[in-house]
Structures are given as C-alpha cells and as structure tokens.
Amino acid sequence: MLGEDLEVRFLPLYSPEAEALGAELAPALVVNRRKLVEGVPSVEEIKEALEKARPIRLGIILTKAPQGSEDAENALLAGLAALEVGDEASLFLLSDGVWAARKEAMAGKLPAFMSKGGEVCVSGEHMRAAGLPPEKLVEQAQVANDAFDQLVDLVMDQWDRVMVF
C-alpha cells in the first residue's frame, strides 16, 4: 500500500529526532520527516495520516520581481519548505518574476533551491519583454519559450497543487 518513496517511522519519546519535531507523546508517527500523529494512533488515523503525507508536486508561480515586495522570498521559502518535507517543488517565473532568475538576484537562493531538487522554469516571452538574455540567468534554469503552453500543461497535468505569488 505504501509507495516506495515514503519513509515511515515511529519515534520513541525523548529521542533527539522526536524532540526536534516537538513530539511530546510517544510514539510519534513520522512520514518523510513530517510529524503526523502523537501518542498511539488508531488504524484509521494511520491510514488518514499516510494519505496526507503522500509526497505532492507543488507548483509555485511567481509574478513579481525580487525587489519591491517579499513575494519572491516567500515563494522561494514555500518551495524550500516543500522540499524539506519530501515534496517536489517547481518555480515558474512569469511576468516580472523572471527577474528572480538573474544570477545576481536573491543572493544565490535560487541555485540553493535547485541544488535541493527544486526546478526553475522561466517564461521566455517575459524574458524577451524585459530584455533579459538567457546568459544572464542562473545556470540550470529552464527557459519556457512558449510560456503559457508549458504553464498550462504543468498546472493541469504535472502539479498537484498550485500557489501564485
């Protein structure tokens, strides 16, 4: 029943990991480093918790430049938080969001996101509108030449959840 990508553990009370997750009752059911149930769970609780813990593919659309608001930072933090608990995360840079992919932008946080498994896709249409050539982008960022075509496929068929910043 369990997917191979789920790491299910019962942490004993007072173990360092249980303490790190703030579990105060034993045993704590933990899936992919996400605390689900404290104390002794029922079978129904375990099944429900496992369903909730199934890794998802999170899509984040960023439409704003890193300067002027916190949205670019928050979009990236949401992506990092998803990766941290074992989910997949993709960042799609649309409109002024393309500025976040500049090498100098965001103090190298985008390469850090990608090194943890995050994907970054940049709208080619908006890069051209902004006069931002591909060589100015962080390495490994993918350019979506037909941005809306690729975005629709990601939203409808690839991503489980979509957030827009």
């Binding site: 649309l94 409109s95 809306f148 075509d149 629709v152 409808m156």
Partner: peptide, 19 residues
C-alpha cells in the same frame, strides 16, 4: 499590472489545449 493579460492568455491557451 499585467495580471488581466496573464489570466486571459492562460485561459485561452488552456482552452486551445482542450480543457
């Protein structure tokens, strides 16, 4: 802002793709 254009362009593309 560009949001109205983004919303309608995305709607058009999704419709073209049969959604």
């Amino acid at each position: 802002s560009e949001y109205a254009d983004l919303a309608v362009k995305m709607a058009l593309k999704a419709r073209e793709k049969g959604h």
